[in-house]
Amino acid sequence: MHRVESDDRAQDLQERLYRRMTEAFGEGRLVLHRLRSPWHTPSALAESHQVNGVWQSATIVHGSWKTGEDHIRVTTWRELPGQNFEPEVLPGLAAAPEEELRVGVDERTVPALLRRGSGVWQLRTAVGEHQILVNGRGTPGDLTLETVDDIVPLIEERRARLARIRGTA
Score class of each variant (00 low, 15 high):
113 L>N: 04
48 S>H: 02
41 T>F: 00
139 T>V: 14
79 E>C: 03
31 V>R: 09
61 V>K: 03
116 R>G: 05
134 V>M: 01
158 R>M: 11
112 A>C: 12
137 R>Q: 07
111 P>V: 07
154 L>V: 15
87 P>D: 02
45 L>C: 08
115 R>P: 09
75 T>F: 01
86 E>W: 04
10 A>G: 02
125 T>D: 01
137 R>P: 12
62 H>N: 07
99 E>L: 11
11 Q>T: 11
98 E>S: 03
140 P>K: 00
96 A>L: 10
114 L>N: 08
96 A>D: 14
117 G>M: 09
119 G>L: 08
1 M>T: 07
141 G>D: 06
123 L>F: 11
135 N>V: 10
152 V>A: 01
35 L>E: 04
22 T>L: 13
113 L>G: 08
108 R>E: 12
26 G>M: 12
42 P>V: 06
61 V>Y: 05
78 R>K: 14
116 R>H: 09
114 L>V: 13
101 L>I: 04
66 K>H: 06
115 R>E: 03
23 E>P: 02
54 V>Y: 04
162 L>W: 11
99 E>W: 06
34 R>E: 05
143 L>S: 05
127 V>P: 12
114 L>H: 05
139 T>E: 14
70 D>F: 00
100 E>A: 15
146 E>H: 00
36 R>T: 10
2 H>W: 05
131 Q>S: 13
25 F>Q: 09
128 G>S: 00
4 V>R: 03
150 D>H: 11
32 L>H: 03
65 W>R: 06
28 G>E: 11
41 T>Q: 09
76 T>W: 01
168 T>R: 15
34 R>P: 05
7 D>Y: 00
37 S>R: 08
117 G>D: 06
48 S>I: 11
46 A>C: 06
134 V>D: 10
28 G>I: 13
15 E>L: 07
129 E>G: 01
19 R>P: 08
165 I>F: 02
60 I>V: 15
30 L>S: 08
101 L>E: 13
149 D>W: 07
119 G>V: 15
89 V>T: 11
66 K>V: 15
138 G>L: 11
38 P>I: 08
151 I>V: 13
164 R>C: 05
73 R>H: 07
82 G>I: 14
28 G>P: 14
64 S>D: 14
14 Q>N: 04
109 T>P: 12
12 D>W: 13
153 P>G: 00
33 H>C: 07
88 E>R: 10
49 H>I: 14
58 A>G: 14
84 N>A: 15
20 R>C: 00
7 D>Q: 09
1 M>Q: 02
73 R>K: 05
22 T>G: 01
63 G>K: 10
80 L>V: 13
156 E>F: 04
